[in-house]
């Protein structure tokens, strides 16, 4: 996903001299295609993320489109106030590129886990948050958003290579993508953890429980109307995110449910409590309830709880649409 992003950006930079790349000394074996092709527009500003955002603010005001790159936490939490007072307050086209979603950095531990970014940034007005789910969508999302006015944040998964079936790389800012249409339960997910959801829905279908999967790939604008439309058909919705359950996707859907008076039962899957241990991405996802196996269990338990555990027969796995 990182490589796809850099390749696409390098191609764009060939067309538009306003594109500048700043890294806070990260991106070994990833950023070189840009650095080698455009050495005069590539700046390693050192391990100093606050300054990197400040510099990007100054460059954007002068007419450039600076992309700033680091591990997600370092790119968006360390310089948070610089982001607030700089690109957000001035509504300048700074692009914050954060690598690593959820537990992507595995044994690197809590300092490298990215569990708060969407929550922290969703409250910044006009800061577009773009969360691609696979390589194809990464490319589409960048091509559709790189030149938009105002600031953006890209949350990129670190190593995920799987493609989401039926999505075909579709991306529309502010819209959700529905990739299946089972009638028993709807999963709403964002980013690369969606692959766990898809595995879970396959396993559920073998048990006679048929799911819909809805991918949310952007906030600010967020797909509120799409979610309202979808949730009206479901007694149960399960949000899945590799993020704390507060502030991110689950909170967004909860806001939609509450403000629109929807009757859907919402179950939020994400990180609860303080993360104190480390382990592989798969281990951590499982421990915190967002592995495919745990999601299957959550879905079955939740359906039982609402008294709607009977399987339907309306599953059509080839269904895809932009809702």
């Amino acid at each position: 996903m990182r490589n796809t992003f850099i390749q696409t950006l390098t191609e764009l930079a060939a067309q538009d001299p306003r594109i500048i790349f700043l890294t806070a000394d990260l991106g070994y074996t990833v950023v070189e295609p840009f650095a080698n092709r455009f050495p005069n527009r590539f700046f390693n500003v050192g391990v100093a993320e606050q300054n990197m955002i400040g510099m990007a603010t100054g460059m954007a005001e002068a007419g450039y489109i600076p992309f700033v790159y680091s591990i997600s936490n370092f790119a968006c939490l360390r310089p948070y106030e610089f982001i607030r007072n700089g690109p957000v307050h001035h509504q300048l086209p700074v692009r914050i590129v954060g690598v690593g979603a959820g537990f992507d950095y595995g044994s690197a531990g809590i300092t490298h886990y990215n569990l708060e970014d969407v929550g922290a940034l969703r409250i910044q007005k006009g800061l577009k948050i773009i969360v691609p789910v696979d390589n194809e969508q990464t490319k589409t999302a960048l091509l559709k958003t790189w030149n938009l006015p105002g600031p953006s944040y890209y949350r990129l998964g670190k190593g995920e290579k799987k493609q989401v079936p039926n999505l075909n790389g579709n991306f529309d800012l502010g819209q959700a993508q529905r990739i299946s249409d089972g009638k028993d339960v709807v999963f709403i997910c964002m980013g690369t953890i969606s692959h766990e959801v898809i595995e879970a829905t396959d396993a559920l279908s073998n048990k006679g429980i048929f799911s819909s999967v809805v991918i949310v790939s952007s906030f600010n604008p967020s797909p509120e109307q799409d979610i309202v439309k979808i949730l009206k058909d479901f007694p149960l919705a399960i949000t899945v995110e590799d993020h704390y359950i507060t502030g991110g996707l689950g909170s967004f859907v909860a806001e939609v449910v509450a403000e629109n008076g929807l009757a859907t039962q919402l179950v939020r899957c994400g990180i609860r409590g303080l993360v104190e241990e480390t382990g592989s991405r798969a281990f951590m996802n499982d421990k915190y309830g967002i592995s495919s196996q745990k999601l299957v269990k959550t879905a079955i338990d939740s359906l039982k709880k609402i008294g709607n555990a009977k399987p339907s027969h309306l599953y059509n796995s080839s269904y895809t649409q932009t809702v």
């Binding site: 400040g54 990007a56 954007a60």
Partner: peptide
Amino acid sequence: GQGLSIGVGSALAA
């Protein structure tokens, strides 16, 4: 502590 970083970007852009 934020103005100088912006100034560095501004000067680099020029």
